[in-house]
Amino acid sequence: MDRISSTRPRPLSPNIQIYRPQLTSVLSIANRITGVALSVCAIGLVGWLVAAARGPRAYSWFQGVIGAWPVQILLLIATFAFFLHLCGGIRHLVWDSVRGFELRQIYSSGWAVVAASVLLTLATWFLSLTIGRVV
């Protein structure tokens, strides 16, 4: 049985304030943050479709907003968020099949997700910038 103290409640020992950030927890919270960020992007996707449906003027206004450099930086971050969530999600699907749970596999798949996300982000932007210039 619980001993009921008659004085003040017991303090809660620190958790996130002291726990060492590890690849496990950092990638998990990253998957969550990118998921929320991509949810905001999904709202933008609907806005973009509506602008396209309304006609050339609305569409070019929307394209103008997207073309502004602060929005371009946000889009670069969103691209990275997309690939991190995509690769991290595939890693989770593998875990759901009860594979890849050895620590060595957890860490190597984790770093692979980070590396793949950086490379895919760079490749995407390189391709879209070069195609945009050629076409």
Partner: peptide, 15 residues
């Protein structure tokens, strides 16, 4: 909203 927009682009209707 998004699906309606996609359909109206497909069928060339006004938005």
């Amino acid at each position: 909203v998004g699906i309606l927009a996609a359909l109206s682009i497909a069928f060339g209707k006004s938005a």
